[in-house]
Write a protein that binds this DNA or RNA. Sequence first.
DNA 1: GTCTATAGTCGGATAGAC
DNA 2: GTCTATCCGACTATAGAC
Lengths: 212, 212
Amino acid sequence: MTEPPITTKDRILDVAERLFADCGFEATSLRTITAEAGVNLASVNYHFQSKEALLHAVFERRVNPVNRRRLELLDACEAEFQNEPIPLERLLEAFFRPLVLELGGVFPKLFVRFLYLESPNTFRELFAKHLRPIARRFFPAFHRSLPGLDPSELFMRIQFAVGGMAQLLAAKSLAEVIGEGSFTIPSHEVALEKLIQFAAAAMRSPVSRGAL
Amino acid sequence: MTEPPITTKDRILDVAERLFADCGFEATSLRTITAEAGVNLASVNYHFQSKEALLHAVFERRVNPVNRRRLELLDACEAEFQNEPIPLERLLEAFFRPLVLELGGVFPKLFVRFLYLESPNTFRELFAKHLRPIARRFFPAFHRSLPGLDPSELFMRIQFAVGGMAQLLAAKSLAEVIGEGSFTIPSHEVALEKLIQFAAAAMRSPVSRGAL
DNA sequence: GTCTATAGTCGGATAGAC
DNA sequence: GTCTATCCGACTATAGAC
């Protein structure tokens, strides 16, 4: 086992990830990043090409392992249940757990920024590129587990569930402000369980048309 | 009826709202705002004091009517049902409808930015200031409608539901990218109905402990 | 209230020595 | 690979004429 060499490149990635998550891309300057990382300003443009390329690197470093893990868990489910539909909770867990629980750090918070807003136009495309293969594998699996829902209805319900996940990942900052500290904030493990339970109950509910 | 005078101040507010929603606060310059609004650069600092004060004005112009309307609808529910618990769907509608359906325009999208990330530190406090009174009125009402849930569990479920709302408000941009255009995007009216149904089913589900 | 002009700052990116 | 020094553009904010 060799010592893990903490290279300049890694130090930049670590600090950039944290600052992008906390303050956003536009609000974070390369000067702040390099100062906090204790590296030279010019090293960013040496190791990466530009600030935006740094953002891409920050994103890809984490999203690749997360998505690999999602597909691993999905594969395991499909192997276990063969041609049977996968139980909904298991499917939701395969989708949520790698990002919500296994990864750790500040990337999940940054991911929520990406999901809703982060602006550079070239970045939206990168984001979609990494998410589309996941959607293409998981959507049919959800469809088999919930055969009663037509695809558009299912897609919308998955979206609502993803919204719940986003809320969980960004909730610390929100719960403190709105909840005024009077509620118990559960561990991530418990919160994930509650999210899965919440989403499963909602996704299974019968479609009622024109009820409102 | 006098003609509605479109003042410089209003033109600035309108354009700033749109650009903040589309690009974010930091990525939007006063120069872009004033150029698109067809007004002078210096007029922003005359009518508002600073870029950040402009953001505050943009926010308060919309959030006040929305929150007034939420409380109106809640009052109406409480009058209708007296001491009875309000049906959950009605409560969710009172909370969601003013922002999701009645307001229109780009503010809902901007609201999602505020909810998860928008950075200026002084702004988080303004955001909380406007949301806390709403939370204080709605939370007890939810508690009466779902007496079986302890407060922390209820708070978490409300948060997940809010996540679903956020997803709906920001979903246009997302659905197109991930869904690759193969799904029907319903009208806002229908989407609101689906959101309420989704959230109600999830919030009513029994609490299962240690199931995972 | 609206304009021009500019102050003063900070940002990303690069050149070139070591 | 790492540093210093610097270019150059963009930004917020303001001063002051009209």
